[in-house]
């Protein structure tokens, strides 16, 4: 990562500068057009948070060579049990912790399967998703005897706080901080080197005396915990309740963010925000009466959040290397 050539670096700086100017101009134009960007940014930050958390965890996980596509399932299960924990322990913060612990537990089980039992990681991940989709509504019935929906009382929520751009959840700041910390850990610490070695050259790491299995178990658990936090964020800090399809495919969007970023946590954060912002923007524009003039326009607007990241990844990011041992179980011979 240090061997960035001079030309590449300057190109990158240029890209950053251009995007910054473009964003400023864009926000100014939005303001002039009567679509206040403040609210779009605020909504975008909310939409970003679960994606950024799950994607950062998954970035670290994949750096160590394990692919967990069960993020959707983790979202769903942790979101319910987190609420249950909050209600039992009497505080929203405790609920967030319980949610992350549930995510960590699923991640741990997934780690056991993929590290020691040589599971096909993609099948196991899909299984977690199918399990979560069924288990969430079942838990709603089992815990609250109320089908498909649960509302959380005020005293068990994580309160939102007032900031200059409006009401935000404290978890949003965590979601911004975590990728930065992850970036530093991955690129500046020995732990980061160990993680990357486990994903790139597990044999070499093994020879060098590192326990690849331990590293991978750690990242699986950590990745699960972060996805779990993302899931419980939705129920305790955003919507103040649960519906059975609360994640609605966001686990897969988080995976797209991981790929968007090429496993860089900072880019994953950017990707998550771009998606959230584009989604908020599209739905804001869609309610202006003019948007109904052509029947296709509202539908096109709904595609915008998906078009924008794809265009950005095509133009600015392109090909990125993935760890060589990604998805391959490593067994000491």
């Amino acid at each position: 990562m240090i061997t960035i050539g001079r030309i590449r670096l300057s190109k990158r700086v240029l890209a950053y500068a251009i995007s910054l100017i473009a964003i400023t101009v864009f926000l100014y134009l939005l303001d002039r057009a009567g679509v206040p960007p403040k609210d779009i940014i605020r909504s975008g930050l909310f939409a970003m948070t679960p994606l950024a958390l799950a994607a950062t965890g998954e970035c670290i996980n994949e750096k160590a060579g394990v692919v967990n596509i069960g993020l959707e399932g983790i979202f769903l299960v942790s979101c319910v049990i987190g609420v249950f924990g909050a209600e039992r322990l009497g505080s929203g913060i405790a609920g967030l912790l319980v949610g992350s612990l549930v995510g960590a537990f699923i991640g741990f089980i997934f780690g056991l399967m993929s590290v020691y039992a040589r599971a096909n990681q993609v099948v196991a991940g899909m299984g977690i998703n199918v399990f979560g989709i069924g288990f969430l509504p079942f838990l709603l019935m089992a815990i609250w005897a109320f089908p498909g929906i649960h509302l959380v009382r005020k005293e068990f929520l994580v309160p939102k706080i007032l900031t200059p751009i409006g009401l935000l959840s404290p978890v949003i700041f965590v979601a911004i901080a975590v990728p930065i910390i992850a970036h530093i850990i991955l690129n500046r610490t020995f732990l980061g080197i160990k993680i990357k070695a486990a994903g790139e050259k597990p044999e070499a790491a093994d020879v060098a005396g590192q326990r690849v299995d331990h590293i991978r178990m750690f990242t699986c658990t950590l990745g699960g915990a972060m996805a779990g936090l993302g899931g419980v964020f939705m129920s305790l800090a955003w919507f103040d309740g649960i519906v059975k399809e609360i994640a609605a495919g966001r686990g897969f969007i988080a995976l797209a963010c991981v790929v968007f970023a090429g496993l860089s946590p900072l880019l994953a954060l950017a990707g998550a925000f771009i998606f959230g912002f584009a989604e908020a923007l599209a739905y804001t524009v869609a309610i202006t009466p003019g948007a109904k003039v052509y029947p296709f326009l509202p539908y096109f607007l709904k595609m915008v959040p998906y078009i924008v990241p794809l265009v950005i990844v095509t133009i600015f990011i392109g090909r990125r290397p993935f760890p060589k041992a990604l998805g391959k179980p490593y067994i000491r011979e």
Binding site: D39, V243, I287, P289, K302
Partner: peptide, 27 residues
């Protein structure tokens, strides 16, 4: 012809879209 702000979100399940649509309406 402009009194009702409305949108077809294209979903009966993704509550995020309910939030994202309602926020600018109230605003």
């Amino acid at each position: 012809d402009k009194r009702v702000l409305y949108d077809y979100t294209g979903t009966f399940s993704d509550i995020t879209k309910g939030y994202l649509t309602a926020v600018p309406m109230y605003e």
